[in-house]
Design a protein around this nucleic acid. Structure first.
Length: 352
RNA sequence: GUGGGCGUAGCUCAGUUGGUUAGAGCGCCAGGUUGUGGCCCUGGAGGUCGGGGGUUCAAGUCCCCUCGCUCACCCCA
């Protein structure tokens, strides 16, 4: 049997169950993931997910820490248009009673649900909360919310999370619709979304507490929490917010050689050995064509070698990005000349 | 899985009720400059019109099939 890994939490938990690291255990991963659903904007068949997981800590302050890590990551990248929603899934004490309550409510409003959920809501009543059809939205708007029916312990946990986020200056919104589909999820759920992404898929990071998962995978009951974020979608958000510079840096020098190419061969090698970025033309093209390539390369200077320079052992250093005359320099001083020119050009940049 | 949109030059796209050698802009190449980029001018190269089949005197254009891309629904562990 072949399986394509869809996410990172279960593998990390399996690794924990097998290897029994000392608790608390903090792990992270970044790996390719695959999805079965059809691709669409910002949702690819294969993508990469970055995630963290912490096992062995039930403290709500850890929930805050995990959320903070994600928030901090966005901040460091320079993303500003990111919003956080949080919710609670309750636990084995309060959720069963709530599900009975919710199911009763949905039964009573069965005819008002959308075609799909009318016959399916019993399977997983909470899923109706993230149905986008107006019929279901209307019904769930008045439905009992899990966050209002938490047991004392879960309510206290949730309150501690909210208080912690506030104390760290992390703004958030409690969203009763933020639910998860599996039983092993407990208590805190959260999701970061980008307001800059136009596409329908704008969630950057989803996470939550899964105090039941380790046990489900064969380990002793162990609390856990983590998040996963999609790298490609993150990059879409970065592009949308313009947080990365757009222009790739140009070359330091471009060698124009119309004297046979030997000088170009020697000079490019010498410049590269000195750590400078340079390129040259090939195929014995005309000076005009070579100069055009030099310009297009974004080079700071063109280094020109014609028959006269070849004969006298010099190189013409011609500035391409600034005013200034081209000057001849001895061939063995060309590295210094380029370093000078690049430094001067950088200085001009800074003064802008 | 369901539905919509789109496949024509390297790129972005026009292409009328079917009708001569399928066009534009940008890019590329050469020339105008005999040793000099950008701006401009002139010329040039480059296309199985996604693929296959059909209708027709004639198909980029109409019909069927197929492949691919894309967006949304769905899904969202």
């Amino acid at each position: 049997m072949l399986a394509l890994r869809p996410e990172g939490t279960a593998p990390v938990v399996r690794a924990y169950v097998q290897h029994r690291p000392v608790l608390p255990w903090k792990a992270w991963y970044m790996a390719p993931m695959l999805r079965h659903e059809r691709p669409q904007a910002a949702r690819y068949r294969q993508h990469h997910q970055l995630g963290i997981e912490v096992l062995g800590v039930a403290d709500a302050d850890l929930d805050v820490e995990v959320i903070w890590v994600a928030r901090e990551f966005f901040t460091v990248l320079g993303l500003a248009d990111v919003s956080l929603r949080i919710g609670s899934m309750g636990d084995a004490t309060c959720r069963p009673a709530y599900l009975v309550l919710l199911t009763e409510y949905l039964e009573a409003h069965r005819d008002e649900l959308c075609d799909e959920h009318r016959d399916r809501f019993q399977l997983n009543p909470m899923r109706v909360f993230d149905c986008k059809r107006p019929e279901c939205r209307a019904v769930t708007a008045g439905a009992p919310k899990l966050v209002d029916h938490l047991c004392d312990a879960c309510a206290a946990h949730f309150e501690r999370v909210r208080e912690g986020l506030k104390s760290l200056g992390i703004s958030f919104e409690v969203d009763p619709r933020l639910v998860r589909g599996f039983d092993y999820y407990t208590r805190t759920t959260f999701e970061f979304a980008s307001g800059a992404i136009e596409a329908a898929q704008n969630a950057l990071c989803g996470g939550g507490r899964y105090d039941g998962l380790v046990e489900m995978l064969g380990g002793d009951p162990t609390p856990g929490i983590g998040f996963g974020m999609g790298i490609e979608r993150l990059l879409v958000a970065c592009d949308a917010e313009g947080v990365f510079p757009v222009d790739p840096p140009g070359l330091d020098a471009f060698v124009v050689d119309v004297a046979g190419g030997e000088a170009a061969r020697a000079i490019t090698t010498r410049l590269r050995d000195a750590g400078l970025a340079c390129d040259r033309a090939f195929d014995g093209r005309s000076m005009k064509a070579q100069m055009k390539l030099a310009d297009r390369s974004g080079a700071t200077v063109a280094l020109i070698v014609g028959p006269a320079e070849a004969a006298s052992g010099t190189v013409l250093v011609r500035p391409l990005r600034s005013e200034g005359d081209q000057v001849p320099v001895p061939a063995d001083a060309v590295v210094d000349a380029v370093v000078d020119a690049v430094r001067r050009a950088a200085g001009l940049e800074d003064r802008r």
